[in-house]
Design a protein around this nucleic acid. Sequence first.
DNA 1: TATGAATGAGGCTTCATTCAT
DNA 2: AATGAATGAAGCCTCATTCAT
Lengths: 231, 231, 231, 231
Amino acid sequence: MSNKTSSADRIREKKKIFLAREQKIIDAALELFLKESIDRVTVSKIAAVAGIGKGTVYKHFLTKNEILARIMLDYERNITNVLAEGIVKAEGGDSGAAAKGYFQARLERPELDRLVQQLEVRLADASDIAEQLEELHATRRSNEESLSTLMTGLIGEGVLEDVPPHFHYLACWALAQGAVELCFNRSWNYRTDTKELMEFITNIGVTMGNRGQYHANARQSKSAKTPKPKK
Amino acid sequence: MSNKTSSADRIREKKKIFLAREQKIIDAALELFLKESIDRVTVSKIAAVAGIGKGTVYKHFLTKNEILARIMLDYERNITNVLAEGIVKAEGGDSGAAAKGYFQARLERPELDRLVQQLEVRLADASDIAEQLEELHATRRSNEESLSTLMTGLIGEGVLEDVPPHFHYLACWALAQGAVELCFNRSWNYRTDTKELMEFITNIGVTMGNRGQYHANARQSKSAKTPKPKK
Amino acid sequence: MSNKTSSADRIREKKKIFLAREQKIIDAALELFLKESIDRVTVSKIAAVAGIGKGTVYKHFLTKNEILARIMLDYERNITNVLAEGIVKAEGGDSGAAAKGYFQARLERPELDRLVQQLEVRLADASDIAEQLEELHATRRSNEESLSTLMTGLIGEGVLEDVPPHFHYLACWALAQGAVELCFNRSWNYRTDTKELMEFITNIGVTMGNRGQYHANARQSKSAKTPKPKK
Amino acid sequence: MSNKTSSADRIREKKKIFLAREQKIIDAALELFLKESIDRVTVSKIAAVAGIGKGTVYKHFLTKNEILARIMLDYERNITNVLAEGIVKAEGGDSGAAAKGYFQARLERPELDRLVQQLEVRLADASDIAEQLEELHATRRSNEESLSTLMTGLIGEGVLEDVPPHFHYLACWALAQGAVELCFNRSWNYRTDTKELMEFITNIGVTMGNRGQYHANARQSKSAKTPKPKK
DNA sequence: TATGAATGAGGCTTCATTCAT
DNA sequence: AATGAATGAAGCCTCATTCAT
């Protein structure tokens, strides 16, 4: 009996090690992607950084693209979770919670968010991983219904402008997308007040599309830099 | 004398032909980039589409990257011009003109704008064309002073929220950037109301950062034409 | 004593299991070879089909080539046995028995025969298994003496044409070899009368090299059963 | 005008050089294939032997397989021509001419014939070159009609046994196939009388399937080794 | 003893760039 | 001046074999 147990234990142990190594590959890939230009990252380098042989990588991933797809999916799942939480909060009354959480999640590690943006562009036409890409899109679409419901509600309450509900969350997506890009664009990122800038943009994201009220920015901005005399 | 003239003519003629061919290369490259995935565009294909020999391409551009850089610069110069016009108008009283023109210019051919976005990412670390990249950044920065002045003015007038002036135009840049991306993202672009969505986002771009007044969206939505008298 | 016996039993039991597994590997390899292109059969697949671990395969065979060599040798030994029987019969008066049995044996499972042909080609230069290849050749050569004697006899009797005796059996070998190939060649195998064709060829094989008489084909065709009294 | 001519000349000259290099690649490949085991021949080696760069090979052939396919097709076309000539002669009265020519053509450079046999086996499932393989099969099938007509005629004249006409030429093909194999099989080719053996087999090929007459071998054999007393 | 994860040599192919004509 | 054939570095991926557990 103890034999049986230890055998099962061993198998579990092996799986753990296996998964750990898989994570090591992902981490190595991430490290490289964040350090240098995407197309200069080779499987060889990833293996080297992960401290394993090139062939081992292919025990975990069928192709190089699968590694990239994995990074994308992992990230997107996290964003999706954050968004889901935000939606719950928003339904509980905090109308800006969804957008706010979304922005904060995407801007928490903007370098990672940007990497994923770029990976998505590059992998758009990769025929291997078509499945993973479909999952990515499905993941996103799965949020749409909740978001639509939420937006429709807020429109009904007069909080948001009366346009098709998806206009609101897509505008949010776009602003977040651009904000991340802004953090790293060589033309602009010589500035040192990125943090404040991102807060400013987040605020815009939270309030854009709002109607019939003073601009939320003016009332809620957490940024101490800009005193708001009227309030 | 006539000899001299005809010789000069000939030289001028040659230059013209030379420049025409250069444009042909750019056009061919653009055509290909817009048709297929960026990394499937080779110098051979560009030459073939341009109807010239591969070697000839290298009489016009030292490296492949220079072609891409040229596309970027051409595009950015156009945007800069539009922006400059907008700034002039804005200084003339139409406070939203700059943002509006900017958004319209970038969303006029979103596929081209997106291409340039992608080229910029790919070329960011290219050591050849460092010079051209510097020019790109310089081009952008050259607008900053005017934009800063403009924003500072609008802040002073109470039109815009009182944050560092660059916050305003950078937020605009970010939203435009994301809007373009939105047009092509596989997860979202199954929609058919892209045009209206872009108008909605443009409106947000024009009014975001405004303060002390009802949200402009609320009053103008759906009619981009409505003049805003108070501004 | 019982202890000793049971120990011996255990050893015998183990050997049996060991040999059974070895056969399982061979069978798995065969199954795969017959199902897909030779070079797409990997040791991993063989192990998987055999239901054992890849490492275990190497407890039975030092290299992958040894598996293939084993398949070849097993097959060739079978052919040799059939031939030996045929030789005995032929010496007993049935002059065509050797050739006939040989053809029938090789054409019984032409797909297997062809596989072995191909393996032989691929392994011809394999430095490991040089020993096994030598055994293969030795096995064949071991038949030569009997065959030579037989042919010499038939030549003396005037049954066969008077050429060096090996001409006769080598011609047979060649025809059988080609007949097998014929069964699978993509250019020809769209036909549906393979069975009759093989009988026709077998008949040729049995009678070729005969002299001083009407061509046996002419008399026996279509009925392999007809006894040939004069021989 | 002379300019025009010399330009055309230059183009022709270039084409010639281009084709010459293509032949050089084929020759290099052939040289290697005949020297060592097929799967040890790499594109690198071929390029090295041809005295060109690896990349250059791909200016002439889309894939490695295309080189092999080319070798096959070139060879098969030659065989087809020889066969066509033989068919013409046969129709002119020399009933054995087709088979004889066929055998002689295939046995003229048996090492090459065997190489092609092996290539055919290896390439059977290559999805690139599917087109070339189809051409190969088509080439062969294109001969079938002529051969069928010829055989049908010979059957009608009572020269050949009355079986489906394709039995005759397929048997020939098989014997030739096996004869070639025989030349190189390690088990048999230690002999020194290969030439005579091949003549013997050729004779069998020419006469097999004949009926109502003494075995042709006996009367026509060119091999001086075997005196034929009755004649 | 059986296992299967790890290895890395080596194969094919692509493409930016050069340079002789 | 225009050309395009030639180049070869570099990337991805496969798989026979090893060896620690």
